[in-house]
Nucleic acid binder design. Sequence first.
DNA 1: GCGGTGGCTGAACTCATGTTCAGTAGTCTG
DNA 2: CAGACTACTGAACATGAGTTCAGCCACCGC
Lengths: 239, 239
Amino acid sequence: MSSATASDPASGPASDAMASEPLRAPGPADPDRTARARIRDAAITRFAADGVAATSVRAIAEEAGVSPPLVMHHFGSKDRLRVACDQHVAALVREQKHAAMAAGGGLDPLAAMRAYEGGPPLLGYLARTLIDGSPHVAELVDEMVADAVGYMAEGEAAGILMPTEDPEGRAAVLTLWSLGALVLGEHAKRLLGVDLTGDPAHSMRYFLPALEIMGRGIIAPEAYEQISASFHDAQEDGT
Amino acid sequence: MSSATASDPASGPASDAMASEPLRAPGPADPDRTARARIRDAAITRFAADGVAATSVRAIAEEAGVSPPLVMHHFGSKDRLRVACDQHVAALVREQKHAAMAAGGGLDPLAAMRAYEGGPPLLGYLARTLIDGSPHVAELVDEMVADAVGYMAEGEAAGILMPTEDPEGRAAVLTLWSLGALVLGEHAKRLLGVDLTGDPAHSMRYFLPALEIMGRGIIAPEAYEQISASFHDAQEDGT
DNA sequence: GCGGTGGCTGAACTCATGTTCAGTAGTCTG
DNA sequence: CAGACTACTGAACATGAGTTCAGCCACCGC
């Protein structure tokens, strides 16, 4: 799944119009790209690198090569810029996801985005913004879980995946784990020497144990039966 | 704080001296508790609730019932206060961990801390500070992984856990997943209706799927053999 | 009693931030 | 060419942040 979708440049430029306002006339030709787009991408890059709160409008303006007031001119406020970034990233992620669907997606809901290159750092942005409560990102997570439920139902029908009592719960837990490891990228790097936002082929120290756990679990069968029974008992008491 | 120090009064007061400076003389008796300790705990509480960057010294002072300059008087700067919080939380976590060791720890490295009540919100603080690079918290994570390696070796010897090629890698991945889900607590709540910083008995919607995955995995045996082989091939190319 | 020491505070300082304002340059419309 | 509109900027404003200052007040050794 890693080397698969390396090349799909077709849908790249379309993203701008898709993600933000009604396609403000391309106007004054474009020597490079629209200042608005440069600002947005600069913001995504800086937000991904330093976090939203720690990034100043001035830093974004500098990275985009414009003056701070122009940021306000185009987006009104830092908050609205942030919303625009959320929406743009969400649009790009959906695009990557749908592109990957055609190529037959794998188990990892993030696989498609890891291959993405050349644009703003989607995974880095997600890793940062997953934790400070954006409705758009939350929506994206919900979609990922829903997608995972779908994929896993197919996998189960095809005999590749094991059945489960609680498909939504299982999908949610797996998604939380994937995204959680992404958010803790700094610790993953320190502990395992891998960069989860990069090429999976260089992150086998993470993916091999993960696959092993997904494949045969970590608990011996007899012990599992026992623990499972006691957990199910506990469930009847609490929620 | 309500039920007082009923459980373990011995180590309670000691933690102050342990976590911070050379035990500044208990001085003017203590009508309640030392202002210094109140400030530190207030900071931990606010950091846990709102994040470090979003918490002002004034907010901490208000929560502790003191004036902002007193915070500076005791800790010198917000940064040094934050370090003191890191160290104090690290000390409390180690304390809880060691206490839980005696009682025979379980699979979940966070289990001990979930039971902790009456003090500052350890898990909430961890969930917030895991992502903004504190050396003390990183150290704590390293210790958790090392502990997990130890526990899992014992479990393996006892026939409860499956053996693995890469014990450190497996322990690191499981720790990353546990902590990652904790950090994404907001999403866990929305998706599953659970509070991972609270009582596990009310979080079965998370723990049951997690146990199932840990127990028998999610991939059917034949498919697993196949994928595993291709992953091991891929490993020979990249890192 | 008395000077001093340390916990503690109200007010003020400095700085960075998000944001606004007034104005310029270039281009399109009539 | 007049007018208008849009992209864009330098300078300034307002606010909230971390931090500092000078002094109060209770206690303690002399």
